[in-house]
Nucleic acid binder design. Structure first.
Length: 303
DNA sequence: CGCCAGGGTAGAC
DNA sequence: GTCTACCATGGC
């Protein structure tokens, strides 16, 4: 059955499903039929499209996913206020907010999948990250069927531990990624890494980052991505090559060196502090506008 | 064949 | 603390 989710469309920054998913920060969306999109969210295979201020969707189980989808697309967040606030803090961001008014930082429901995805993002392009995440799901996740579309749930971290290093190595993920993934699962099991959002009240950016960067394979940048996309910590500010270029180009007072492929830990933190001071509690949203603009300019979008 | 892709680490000073 | 070589894989 097709469900309809009615939401309050913003007048200033209208939501656009197709574009949001095109720029999505998770890696499991693809086109399906005509204007329909196919995606896997927290074990649900979903087909979805937008008609004005209505989201029409189907799921493989037929379950009511309104609550999850409202959260995921931030349909209940005060987007007008947040984007106005960002625009008033910075004139360049104001331009980008206007240009990409449809952009949203998606609140990903499965922080474990998010963690694995960004562990796999190092020295990799978006298409290959999607491919790797899909490969892990196809091999170890449960099969999901919807109208002839076959997808696979992302395996839980318990399932990953049951599978073990041996079978994981056979996926040839490269760069020791199989070990990094399993190590992360072990640290969660042992209580050294807590990815549950319910258990983190507020302002735990530094605590979360400390736990994350203590893991093998998770450095500053990956930790910030997990914090922002998976843990809903909006002040997290991932600094990758694209963001680095944008900062060096547009902001003279930013401590971003002109051309450095690798940032020292100290330098990285200086840049994050600069960004949080300038953009505030929603620095991570500003980050995504900068990121998207930079990628559009370098024409790297392969989706 | 060489270059690149949303970095991170160990081992060197 | 900071700097480097190296890391594996696939697409072009």
């Amino acid at each position: 059955m097709t469900r309809k989710l009615y939401f309050n469309q913003s007048n200033k920054y209208p939501f656009d499903l197709g574009k949001v998913l095109y720029a999505a920060q998770d890696f499991r969306w693809c086109k399906w039929d005509n204007e329909w999109h196919s995606g896997v969210l927290a074990g649900n295979l979903i087909h979805i499209r937008q008609v004005d201020s209505v989201l029409e969707y189907k799921s493989h189980s037929g379950a009511d996913l309104d609550v999850m989808l409202r959260s995921y697309f931030r349909l209940c967040d005060p987007i007008d206020d947040i984007y106005d606030q960002l625009a008033s803090r910075d004139s360049y961001i104001a331009q980008l907010v206007k240009k990409y008014h449809w952009l949203r930082v998606l609140r990903q429901p499965d922080s474990w999948e998010c963690t694995v995805s960004y562990i796999c993002s190092a020295t990799n392009n978006v298409d290959r990250i999607s491919g790797i995440v899909e490969k892990i799901a196809e091999n170890f996740g449960g099969r999901l069927d919807l109208d002839g579309d076959v997808r696979f749930a992302f395996p839980t971290r318990r399932k990953v531990l049951r599978v073990g290093v041996g079978q994981f190595r056979e996926l040839s993920l490269g760069l020791d990624r199989h070990c990094k993934i399993i190590t992360a699962a072990e640290r969660i099991r042992d209580g050294q890494l807590n990815l549950s959002r319910a258990a983190r009240p507020e302002a735990l950016y530094h605590k979360a980052k400390g736990q994350l960067t203590a893991c093998y394979g998770i450095g500053n940048k990956v930790a910030d991505c997990i914090a922002l996309f998976g843990l809903d910590i909006t002040e997290a500010f991932p600094v990758d090559v694209h963001i680095g270029r944008a900062l060096a180009k547009r902001y003279g007072d930013c401590p971003m060196p002109e051309n450095s492929s690798t940032l020292s830990n100290r330098k990285y933190c200086e840049i994050v502090n600069w960004a949080q001071d300038r953009f505030g509690k929603y620095a991570g949203f500003a980050n995504q506008f900068l990121f998207h603009e930079e990628r559009e300019n370098s024409q790297l979008m392969g989706r």
